[in-house]
C-alpha cells in the first residue's frame, strides 16, 4: 500500500508497485459543481419547453440539453474522464450502434410506399412487363399519387406525412 501521488496519475489505481488497488478520489467541490450544473440544466430544459421555436427546434434544444447532462454524468459521476480510454470506447460504441439502428430503420419508415404511388399510375402489363413504352412513364407529383398510396399497403398507409398541422402546445 505504499503509493505516492506521482505513481498514479493515470486514473484508477495504476502504478501501485505491488498491484494493489489504489483509488482515485476527486475533490468534493467537483461533485457539488456537477450537481449544481445538472439541476441548472434541468430548470433550463423545462423553461425552454415553454418557448415556442417550432416543434423541431424544441426537440433539438431538449435533446441538446439532455446530451450535455448525460455527458456530465458520464464523464464525472461515472469517472469516464479519468477511466481507461477503452471504457469510453465501449460506451461510445453503444451510442454509435444505437444511432445506426435508429437511423437505418427510419430510412424505411420515413420513405415507405413512395414507389407504389408511381406504380399505381403506371400499371405494369403483366403479359408484357418489358414493353418499351409504358403509359405515362414519367414521375407523378406526390400529391396526385397520394390516394393511390393510401390503399396500396396497409402498414405503409400512415407514412405519407400527416396533412394536419397540429396546434402548437
Amino acid at each position: 500500500m505504499s503509493t505516492s501521488h506521482a505513481e498514479h496519475d493515470h486514473g484508477h489505481g495504476h502504478g501501485s508497485a505491488n498491484g494493489d488497488h489504489v483509488p482515485h478520489v476527486l475533490p468534493f467541490k467537483v461533485y457539488i459543481g456537477t450537481f449544481a450544473t445538472l439541476l441548472f440544466l434541468t430548470v433550463v430544459t423545462v423553461a425552454a419547453s415553454y418557448v415556442d421555436i417550432g416543434h423541431t427546434g424544441n426537440l433539438i434544444v431538449a435533446l441538446l440539453i439532455a446530451t450535455i447532462k448525460a455527458s456530465v454524468v458520464a464523464l464525472i459521476f461515472m469517472h469516464l474522464k479519468w477511466d481507461h480510454k477503452f471504457h469510453g470506447i465501449i460506451f461510445v460504441s453503444a451510442l454509435i450502434f444505437l444511432a445506426v439502428f435508429i437511423g437505418i430503420t427510419m430510412s424505411d419508415t420515413e420513405f415507405r410506399g413512395e414507389a407504389e404511388s408511381i406504380e399505381a399510375h403506371n400499371p405494369v402489363d403483366l403479359k408484357d412487363p418489358f414493353k418499351a413504352q409504358r403509359t405515362g412513364d414519367v414521375a407523378i407529383p406526390k400529391e396526385a399519387a397520394a390516394p393511390a398510396a393510401a390503399g396500396s399497403a396497409a402498414p405503409a398507409a400512415g407514412s405519407a406525412a400527416p396533412a394536419v398541422t397540429p396546434a402548437k402546445h
Binding site: 437505418i104 430510412s107 420515413e110 415507405r112 413512395e114
Partner: peptide, 22 residues
C-alpha cells in the same frame, strides 16, 4: 453485420430506399 439486416425484408414492404441501401 450490423448494417445489413434489411436484406431479410426486401419483400416485407419496407421502403425502396432501405432495400437499395441494404
Amino acid at each position: 453485420s450490423f448494417l445489413v439486416w434489411g436484406h431479410h425484408m426486401f419483400v416485407s414492404g419496407q421502403s425502396e430506399l432501405s432495400s437499395a441501401i441494404f
